[in-house]
Write a protein that binds this DNA or RNA. Sequence first.
RNA 1: GACCCCAUCGUCUAGCCUGGUCAGGACACGAGCUUUUCAAGCUCGCAGCGCGGGUUCAAAUCCCGCUGGGGUCACCA
Length: 456
Amino acid sequence: MRVRFAPSPTGFLHIGGARTALFNWMYARSQNGKFILRIEDTDLERSKKEYLDEILDSMQWLGLQWDELYKQSDRFPIYREYAQKLLGEDKAYKDGEAIILKMSAPPIVPPLSERRGETSPPADLDANKAADGGPLQIIKWFDLIRGEITFDASEIKDQVLMKSDGSPTYSFACVVDDALMEISCVIRGEDHISNTPKQLALYHSLGFKPPKFAHLPLIMGEEGGRMSKRHGATAVTEYRKMGFLPEAVVNYLMLLGWSPGNNQEIVKMATALKNFSIKKINKAGAAFSMEKLEWINSQYIKQTDTAALVALLRPLLAQRGWADENFDSAKLENIVNLFKARMTTLQDFFYWGEFLFVDPITIDSEARVQYLSQDRAKEFKLLGERLREIPEFNAASAESVFRELVAKLGIASSELVHPVRVALTGKSVGPGLFETMAVLGKDRTVKRLSETVFHG
RNA sequence: GACCCCAUCGUCUAGCCUGGUCAGGACACGAGCUUUUCAAGCUCGCAGCGCGGGUUCAAAUCCCGCUGGGGUCACCA
């Protein structure tokens, strides 16, 4: 069993392409087959090395490792050879330098494959008569996802095989390669359905046995239309930059048009592979939902080891100049644990954690107005003094000192909790105050309390 | 426009093949619990078979039509 993903390096890998790649990859991995990556760079003008690099990089980031890699630009002599063969057999003709397939050449034999155990009876071309009694040639195939799809062969025009510049056209290179690479099932986007009858005609003319076909529904934008850059990110690399984990992106993508069937949303890849079946892929297009992706990502962050998150965060921390490679791992883990439950993406860490890396802190203006307007200098001073004397500074000891003071002053704890949080973190919301103090450390906590300025 | 494909809560989906379980789950949304805040977590709730015809004792499920959505109509891939 062999499948392929065939991107064209005329742009980066977008989220729809990633899903096509994912389904191919999952099918191969679940069937013990081979996953081939074929770069369709026949358009010399538009293909760019930087796009190729970005595609390969995105694939690797997503964990979609390929077993074989081909570039069509390395295979031009092969396409030329087959075009010559068709020319020699009078199945194609020349128009200037271009080589064109005669579509008057069929009979076309409809390829058939199976779905849910049932086999369509082989179509008898002679039996297909048009209303006027003339022959009606039908091209049809049994799509693994959609069932039988039928086209009228007479509507298909002669096709260019080799362009005037000597490069092959998409369909020609695609058919030659899928045949020579012994692809057993072509899994691709629905936008290729109307290419399929042309390609089937090509298989026939070349004397190749066609593969099975499975046409995936398309991913649509949040508002239902075509997915576009205007309405959110389309490139896989953008999701990486936004702080999504590849496992979460993959998990979300597989749920778009497919379901493991047991009411599970967070799916381990091993489970997904065990339950994977092309037949269970949906026929209808699915709207992309950033919100659900974010929820899945937050779930993955929660279940990822803190040490692993630290490893992912370190380079980003270094990039910002917040912490170099010498920054203590245990400390970093404590910090990550403080925010883990409230991170939707990796990037959220920098929003929540800023006060731990940047000095002096920036105090949110609204938080200042709301909590630092009333003068609490006296209480802050007392609190600072008492915290300073704690021999073993941690969340529990800080809390008991805090509670004692509040009781002694006869004020509600919330009257002091909120101003202190703003003083320490610059924000009016965040993790528990005493956990925050513990992670900040005694010295910085005391220092920030003493340096707080109140505006009345 | 022509051709092709598709249609279950706002969204992603289970159920459809092999008609008969209050149409199940998740995101989002709402309420409550928890609580020093905001999240997280837990509990509960809101919400759907596009419409019209058939077939049948019985239709989300099978058939037809309509409507709606999507895709393709290149010497781009």
